Simulated scan of single mutants.
Amino acid sequence: MAFDLEELRAAVAAHGPVARVVIAAIRGSSPREVGAAMVVWENGQSGTIGGGALEFQAAEAARAGRLGLSRHALGPELGQCCGGAVTLLTEAWDAARLEAIEGEVVARPVSGAAPAPLAVKRLLARARGQGVAPEPQLIEGWMVEPVLKPARQLWIWGAGHVGRALVEVLSPLPDIAITWVDTGVERFPETIPAGVTRVPAARPADLVPYAPREAEHLILTYSHELDLELCNRLLRHDFAFAGLIGSATKWARFRSRLAALGHGSQQIARITCPIGDPALGKHPASIAIGVAARLLSPAHGETTRKELRA
Rank of each mutant, 00 (worst) to 15 (best):
A2N: 07
D4L: 08
L5T: 01
L5I: 00
E7A: 15
E7R: 13
V22R: 06
I23G: 00
S29I: 01
S29P: 01
V34E: 06
A36R: 10
T48D: 02
I49D: 00
E55P: 07
F56D: 14
Q57S: 04
A59C: 06
A59W: 09
R66D: 13
L67T: 12
R71G: 08
A73G: 02
P76D: 12
E77A: 13
E77G: 06
L78S: 03
G83L: 13
E91Y: 05
W93M: 10
A95D: 07
V106R: 14
A107H: 01
G112V: 11
A116E: 13
P117S: 06
V120I: 07
L124M: 05
A127L: 10
E135M: 11
W142N: 04
M143G: 11
M143D: 03
V169D: 00
S171E: 03
I176R: 01
T179I: 00
G184F: 08
E186A: 13
T191M: 11
I192K: 02
A194P: 01
T197H: 07
T197I: 12
V199Y: 03
A201P: 11
P209F: 07
Y210K: 15
R213V: 14
A215H: 09
L220T: 10
S223F: 02
L228T: 12
E229W: 05
C231D: 10
L235A: 01
F239R: 10
F239G: 05
G243V: 15
L244W: 05
A252N: 07
H263K: 08
G264P: 03
Q266N: 11
I268C: 07
R270M: 06
R270N: 06
T272S: 03
C273S: 14
G276V: 02
L280I: 04
H283Y: 08
I289S: 06
S297H: 10
S297P: 04
E302Q: 14
